[in-house]
Design a protein around this nucleic acid. Structure first.
Length: 210
DNA sequence: ACATTAAGTGATT
DNA sequence: AATCACTTAATGT
């Protein structure tokens, strides 16, 4: 396991901290589609992603979801950072996009390491910053892009985190993630297909010219 | 063969 | 871009 951790985080942390992470962290393998964190949950452990991808969703008052961003290996959930510090409820829902390997770190260790290791401090601040950037990007796409561009972005992201140019999803699911209707997704996908950007199958969409 | 689910399409707002 | 109503195609039992 130490090898795994070193592979993903070795360049970030000093050996002493890596050893502590291995000693304390609990390795967890999550199957695809599992809800890791739900809205309103209190977070008591902080996950470090070793492999796989997690999608982060926000929910409105009517209960419909909206995709915010994906988290990949080497990242951690920014929500946990604010949540564990202030003992607040989660504002987001995190669902594993693929099978995911996580290293669970108890929250109390977080604070301890913050004082003990500067590399940990940097890691936390940096990932917080990155999340913030992704959030702004998500807002931009939402506010300024049209549906067809949003769908293209979505497909690109999804292809990226899955390391596969064939996206496994129904139009319904895409519509759900982007908070629109299935009909709209079908129409736009059809348009993108005639433009030669993608290829449509049942339950699958293939990305061309990447 | 039949039911269910995914996707395509025209019309309307 | 959303919704409705309907059709067609693919898949499961």
């Amino acid at each position: 396991m130490l090898k795994e951790v070193k592979h993903h985080y070795g360049y970030l942390f000093e050996n002493e901290l890596l050893d502590e992470i291995c000693e304390i962290g609990v390795l967890k393998t999550i199957p695809e589609g599992e809800v890791l964190v739900d809205i309103g949950d209190y977070i008591k452990t902080m996950p470090l992603l070793l492999s796989g991808a997690v999608k982060v969703m926000r929910e409105d008052d009517n209960g419909s979801d909206l995709l915010l961003y994906f988290i990949e290996q080497g990242d951690t959930c920014a929500m946990t950072i604010t949540c564990c510090m202030g003992q607040k409820k989660s504002e987001i829902r995190a669902i594993s996009e693929t099978e995911t390997q996580l290293l669970m770190i108890p929250v109390k260790k977080m604070a301890e390491w913050m004082h003990k290791y500067t590399s940990w401090q940097n890691f936390i601040l940096q990932s917080y910053n990155e999340r913030m950037k992704e959030l702004l990007e998500a807002i931009d796409t939402l506010a300024f892009l049209k549906m067809d561009e949003r769908i293209l972005n979505y497909l690109r992201d999804k292809a990226m985190v899955n390391h596969d140019d064939v996206i496994h999803a129904t139009h319904q699911e895409i519509a759900h993630d982007l908070h629109t209707s299935r009909v709209v997704v079908s129409r736009i996908l059809k348009k993108l297909e005639t433009e030669g950007k993608i290829e449509l199958f049942r339950n699958n969409i293939k990305f061309k010219d990447l």
